[in-house]
Every structure is written in C-alpha cells, then in structure tokens.
Write a protein that binds this DNA or RNA. Structure first.
Lengths: 235, 235
DNA sequence: TAAGCGTCGATTGTCGACAGTTTAATCTTG
DNA sequence: CAAGATTAAACTGTCGACAATCGACGCTTA
C-alpha cells in the first residue's frame, strides 16, 4: 500500500518497502518538529493517518529506536527522544572521533574523481550561501561530510555517522537557524578539502577536529537558550 | 507469553519483553553457530520453535538487522550476515577508533572505585586463563573493554561498541579458539590499566591501538584459514 | 482539602489469517 | 539429456481482532 496518492508515474523503484517509508515519514516528522521531543508516538494514530495497519508502524518505530530518535517504555509506547545538553555533547564528541578517523582514511583513498566531487559539493555550498534556506544549507553541509566518509570506504563508519546525523538534525531542526554567516561555511569546507589533498595526517585530524568542535560550540550555545528537559518519563 | 517456564519466584522484573527475549535468543543462535552465516531466518520457523507468533520475531529480526547481525532482502526474508575479511577489517578499524577515544575519556574519569573494578576484572582474566573455556575467556576479555567504555561515560560510544561486539562474537564463535597463550591476555590488560592510571594521552592511545591491532592481526590470520564467501544473495 | 481507591477509556502486545511472491520440484520439449 | 516452462509448496508482508495493561478521572474517606 502506498503512502502518498499514487504519483501516476511508474517511478516506483525502491518504493516497495512500507516500513522503510514509514521510517522516513516518522524521521521527517521528528526532524521538522511535527513530533516534538517527548511526544508520544501512538501506533494506531500513525497507522490510521497513513492508512495502514499497526504492524509496519511498530517495526519502523523499533528501527528509529535503534537509531536513537525514539525511546520505548514497555507497555507505554514509543516517545520522541528528548535530547539534553549531555546528549549533544556525546554526539559531537563521537562525531569528532569518527570523522577525524574517516578523514584520514579518505585522504588515503583520495582520487581525482572524488576530489572533484568534493569540490563540486563546495560549489553547492557557495550557491546555497546566498539563499535564505537554512535547512538546505545544513543539509548540503552534511552532504559534504558524508561524502568524506563515503570516500573513507567503511560502511560501519558511515552507519555511525548517519545515525548521529539524524539525531543531530533533530536538534538543529529545533534550533532553526544555525549559521550566523552562511557565506563562511563554504570557506571552512574548502579548508577541509585542502588538508585532505595535502594528506598530512596530523593536520587533517586537527583541522577536522577544530571544524566540528566549532559547530559543537555553536550548537551548544544555541541549545542552551532553549528548554532543558529531562529525558524519558518518570518510572 | 513466557519463553521459560515461570521460575516460581517473584523475580519477574525485566522479563516482560518478548522481542527483547527473542532478540537475545537469535543473537545467541547466531553467535554459537546454530544459525550459520548466510542461513535463512524463517520467521514462522522461529516463531513456532518459541511457541509465539511471527510479529515479535519480525521486530526482533529488524533489531538485529540494525545491529548488523542479519541482513534483509525484501520479499525474501532475513539472513544471517556473512562477514568477509573486509568486514573484519572495518570492525577492528572502528574499534580502534572508538576504543582509543573512550580510553582517553576513561582516564579522565578514572576514580579509585572504577580503577578497582578494572583490576578485579583483570583478576578474573587471570583465573579464566587456567580454564579451558575459550568462550569464557573471550567474554571476560570483552567485559574489560566494555568497562573502560562505561567509565568513559558516553552511551553512544557504548552502543557502537556493543554493536561491534556482537558482530565480532559472531566471527570469533566461528573461529573457535582465539588465544594461543591465554595466560598472556591478563598481562596485556594489566598494561592497559597501567597506562590509564598513568594518564598520558598519547601513550594511552598508542597502547590501546596496539592492543586492539594485535587482536585484529590474530583474528585476521585465523579468519583467512576459513571459507571466504561473498555476502548476501545475488540480485 | 488531600490522599486513597475503583472504574473506564485508550493503547499496547500478541495472535491468527489471507493474499501475493518467491523458491523448489515436476513436467515438457527440443 | 539439458534447458525451459509449469505447478505446488513455503514464506513474507500486511491486516484486523482481542485480551491485558496503563493512565486519567472522579468518588470516597479521612
């Protein structure tokens, strides 16, 4: 059963995967705040809303739980995870750990082809800098980082990053605007590509560390201007 | 529905979680080889065997898929993941990345209490060295490493480690014997605790890196004596 | 008025069923 | 006899149903 009204076209490639679709829908709902942190995710409600049964919804919820977007209290249901300042710190700490390592691997695997791909992505960053679409800016930013990890060539590294990303998108979606000076993000990423090309391990690690830590401080600052809430429900 | 016959006592605390139980059963089956790599996991079969319906089995399978123990081919079902040499490399590469980082954090958080806990675990390693129970040795080995990450204090770091661990247990279970000289593993872990206490970042990272890399080489050697198989099924 | 208790609606956990698809087995046919 | 077509069995994806449980509300009782 399709979620959207059949889009006429026969472009039903990787569509056949209900729980995947539900997972995407839920993820999106969490990211854009339709499902606020702490909100209860009522299986029957989602199911009815999507015109499907509860089974696929439950499976999708379990998936998102594993990814850290939802928490489940047995016999009480699934809830949108509340991220506290501590979680943000954990996420960025792990991001630094993982991305610095990935950057080193990526530098080793750097070919003209994927070097150009990165450069093109930086061009995209330049373009989006002018737009007022903050969400888009964040998205293209992530895409660059993700490309680096793809180049590193480890599926597991990529999975960790993707899981962290969806958690982060949640907070960032909540914060709203992220960059004070959008034009600068393209520049900072050029610096990242530079050190990758240069290929000196220490410098690469230091540069990526600095870059991510900067984002960490930025997000941390903005988050602390927002409600601090204890996670989960009382026992 | 309970899996075991009710153990009389009222110690039915965290029992109420069918999918959790199923997940554990399946994990165990994968680790000890009852479910061989590449084997098909038939939902109805598992369900019947456990005397439950397919729904919880499916949810558990999705969970293990997310953890990397199973792969799912839409419309064809779940299969036990086949780990190739490349996967082993990815796992250990990530382990080094994560555990070295965790070790640094752990060193900062090291208190007399958890320092003693680590030491006690090393004692256990000494004791199990005499036994011929290889599985037990591996398990206690992991427990030490896990404790370090617990001390580091990041839930996410711990989750990444746990996921990697279950994948690794799979390979190691397959290999059978892992240590040529069991008496040495206690020693090497003492060295790890030493550098943690000493608290010098570079030395900690280097030592953990070396320790894990050694295991990597060991496992890699043993794995390559075993069938190399392509993962998944043909499209 | 505040704490305790029972009731009722809402929601989860689990089950069995059914249709559509995949896989295995059997039967053709060149 | 081998390759392809055909049929039958097995399995997955999804659904709707039902009992058990949880949380809220209101009522009783100090």
């Amino acid at each position: 059963m399709r979620l959207m009204s059949p889009p006429v076209g026969l472009a039903a490639l990787a569509d056949t995967d209900l729980v995947g679709q539900v997972a995407r829908v839920l993820t999106q709902a969490v990211i854009n705040g339709q499902l606020a942190p702490g909100a209860k995710v009522v299986e029957a409600g989602i199911a009815r809303e999507l015109g499907i049964s509860r089974a696929p919804v439950r499976e999708a919820a379990r998936l998102l739980e594993q990814q850290g977007l939802l928490v489940s209290h047995p016999r009480r249901g699934f809830f949108v995870r509340k991220l506290e300042a501590r979680d943000i710190d954990e996420i960025y700490d792990l991001r630094i750990c993982v991305e610095c390592h990935a950057a080193l691997l990526a530098a080793k695997n750097l070919t003209p082809a994927n070097r150009d791909a990165l450069r093109r992505q930086i061009d995209v960053l330049h373009e989006t800098a002018d737009l007022e679409d903050h969400a888009r800016q964040v998205e293209e930013d992530y895409k660059f980082h993700r490309m680096v990890i793809e180049i590193a060539g480890s599926q597991r590294l990529l999975k960790v990053f993707d899981d962290l990303s969806s958690e982060l998108r949640m907070v960032i979606g909540l914060i709203g605007r992220l960059y004070d000076d959008p034009s600068r993000i393209a520049q900072t990423h050029e610096a990242l590509l530079d050190v990758l090309e240069q290929g000196h391990a220490d410098i690469i690690a230091a540069r990526f560390d600095y870059h991510i830590a900067a984002a960490w401080r930025e997000v941390g600052k903005l988050v602390r201007e927002i409600p601090a809430s204890t996670n989960g429900a009382a026992p």
